[in-house]
Amino acid sequence: MSYYFKLLVLFLEVLVLKVRIKKWYVYMVFAAASFILSVVFLLWSVYYMSNAMVGTSFLTALAGFAFLASSVQALKITAYVYSVESGAGSEARKES
């Protein structure tokens, strides 16, 4: 498990340092993925409720809501990283 996690971190490091994509893209991808998952889960909860599976529906709604919260939190961190990066860019421009 930790091996795969290290591999993922290495992959992201290569993306950020060598390919030179901006850092906030990584967070943005995470936010978008969890948002899609949350929408899927929330729709599932409505579907379960229409089939009279109340407990399953509430559990799915809870899961969807957890995904929504994580996506919004990731979006917030994305915004912070974006503004830090943009500020660094403008400072570099001022120096040069």
Binding site: V72, A79, S83, S86
Partner: peptide, 12 residues
């Protein structure tokens, strides 16, 4: 809050 940071980036 996130959208506000995207519109007005404030590094500090």
């Amino acid at each position: 809050d996130a959208v506000a940071y995207f519109i007005i980036p404030n590094p500090t």
